[in-house]
Design a protein around this nucleic acid. Structure first.
Lengths: 117, 117
DNA sequence: CTCTTCTACAACCATTTGGTTGTAGGTTAG
DNA sequence: CTAACCTACAACCAAATGGTTGTAGAAGAG
């Protein structure tokens, strides 16, 4: 897997897509099972078209892909997507917590005990 | 620090706040050094009031806090904020990547889960 | 005290977002 | 073939976003 640099716009789209409870729920559902858009739409108190738009936002952010299966379009969450988001967070953290030397270790080891001054 | 559960609205605010390049840059700058709002405003091609609004968004999301210092208001990023965002991502990942065994190992290795229900 | 600086906040405006309905095009079932 | 189903997309609307300017209040500097 290639470690692609994420542009500002890509990070914008990523976090924007994640900033909505319905879209996060779609990610969860389509992570467990690939679902068609209309199957998804049954789960939410909104129109089919609205769900279609949410899926489009997720797709533009690279969080899901669609695959034609007959007359249905199956949505499935990209397993690498979470890594992209995590990497974006890590880059931010590396920059903004640079003054706390401890963060370097935190990044390598991901997380450890977080309480000492 | 207690591991607080993040409400849907809190996660919304978190990711929404992160979905803007100017705000991410503010986080970086105020991670290296606490800066007053007007000092920050000098760095961006927009008005003081606009920067003030960005800081307010970050503050509502819990990513920064403001501390009065004389007539200035120093902004500094909350070192725990990145952990909150990371935890939100981890919870999402745990739910949506449950079917991919590989991810479980990654999560365990990346973050020692310190909860017992 | 007076002047300047820093901040807060209201009012306003253009654009985007999140929702709706409606229409049209493919694809499968009978 | 015809009917039913799934999807794509346009047009529209209310509300939120991201920006502006302007006014007013606190706090330091001189």
């Amino acid at each position: 897997m290639v470690v692609e640099e994420l542009s500002d716009e890509a990070v914008d789209r990523l976090f924007h897509a994640l900033a909505d409870a319905t879209r996060r729920d779609i990610l969860r559902r389509c992570g467990r099972d690939d679902l068609s858009v209309s199957r998804l739409a049954e789960a939410y108190p909104m129109s089919f078209a609205a769900v279609q738009k949410h899926v489009a936002v997720l797709e533009r952010a690279g969080l899901v892909t669609k695959e034609r299966r007959g007359r249905e379009q199956l949505v499935h969450t990209d397993p690498e997507a979470v890594e992209k988001a995590r990497r974006a967070l890590d880059e931010l953290a590396a920059a903004w917590l640079g003054r706390i030397g401890r963060m370097a270790a935190l990044l390598e080891q991901a997380q450890e005990e977080t309480e000492d001054p």
